[in-house]
């Protein structure tokens, strides 16, 4: 393996400066994904800038919402009583992912910024446009059962593997970023993540030295919510399809509906088209099916992952049934 240096700065400015100094410098928090990628030679940093002394572990609840520091662990967030009361969706999503040991180490920012688990991305002896731009994407004609159908391109069909980010997308979370220059930005998840297009090597809009400092959740809406994940085994497996759903029904019609999907796209996929189709309507099975058809109208299914479209629709119908049992009459 390549020799590397390790730094543990005390200030965000110092940390940003360190990362900007070398193109091969990276931030490290829990390291649960980064060190795996280093072992595989997928990422070969010359400098690891540890963020643990940067005071990023705030977790505070306010009337207007909640602030989650970027360095809070996944386990810490999932177990927080305030999160469990106000945003059970977040806890459910986190606990649906990884293992206890990984959740104890992994940070919120690291979770958001983890890389795809595509088998070609992780094998440096094979082509991959995300890892080695221009080398090609063998997944499209190869092993792609677990890969994406929405937001993909002819250059890359990778999925974003996070469960937590799917819940955050449904909750309209905002990611606070300290720019390398020192300014502060607030990004929605759709602004944070970019779609691959012809540059699948760039997962996000962040520039070198940009530091995720926190995630802000707006005040809870009170809408019943549910995270459900379909996977190949009961724990410690990435989603084939997952859904983070929130649904509030009044007089039989949906007055608040949020749907986000994992396992289908290069980013947590907020299904705004489907939401629009359901809002103000009775969420019947047939309407959900139509709404999902509209959402997946732009999908680029491949032979072995086309099932994800049906699975997403079926899963959504099931979750809506759970969230709005009173809708039975409407079916």
């Amino acid at each position: 393996m390549k020799p590397l240096s390790y730094a543990r700065p005390r200030t965000q400015a110092e940390a940003a400066a360190l990362v900007r100094r070398s193109p091969d410098a990276v931030f490290i928090a829990g390291g649960t994904n980064l060190t795996d990628l280093m072992k595989l030679d997928v990422v070969t940093p010359d400098l690891l800038v540890d963020v643990q002394d940067l005071d990023l572990t705030e977790l505070t609840h306010h009337e207007w919402g909640t602030v989650v520091g970027a360095g809070v662990t996944n386990a810490g967030l999932a177990g927080d009583i305030g999160i469990r009361r106000r945003y059970p969706l977040v806890s459910e999503a986190i606990l649906a992912g990884a293992s206890g040991q990984i959740r104890n180490a992994a940070s919120i920012a690291g979770n958001l910024l983890q890389r795809t688990r595509c088998g070609y991305f992780q094998d440096v002896t094979k082509p991959c446009n995300k890892r080695s731009p221009g080398s090609g994407c063998p997944a499209i004609a190869g092993a792609h059962r677990e890969l994406g159908v929405l937001g993909t391109s002819e250059h890359c069909v990778a999925t974003h593997p996070s469960d937590m980010a799917v819940a955050l997308a449904a909750l309209d979370a905002v990611v606070r970023v300290r720019r390398a220059t020192g300014s502060v930005s607030a990004l929605t998840l759709d602004e944070l993540y970019r779609l691959p297009g012809d540059r699948p090597d760039r997962d996000t809009t962040l520039e070198p030295g940009d530091l995720v400092t926190a995630v802000e959740l707006p005040a809870p809406t009170g809408a019943p919510s549910r995270y459900r994940k379909v996977r190949d085994r009961t724990s410690f497996a990435f989603a084939l399809v997952s859904v983070a759903a929130m649904l509030k029904v009044e007089d039989g019609v949906a007055v608040d509906v949020r749907l986000a999907y994992g396992g289908v796209a290069p980013r947590p996929w907020r299904a705004r088209t489907a939401e629009a189709a359901l809002l103000g309507e009775r969420p019947t099975d047939s309407l959900i099916t139509q709404a999902l058809q509209a959402e997946f109208a732009t999908a680029r299914p491949l032979p072995d992952n086309a099932f994800k479209i049906n699975l997403a629709a079926s899963l959504t119908r099931a979750v809506v049934r759970d969230l709005a049992p009173a809708q039975k009459a409407g079916r």
Partner: peptide
Amino acid sequence: RFGGFVTQDLAGYHVPAHAD
């Protein structure tokens, strides 16, 4: 296409977990 296996580790090669 390339030979060998696409499955390369125990994250992708699933064996039953305790929950199963």
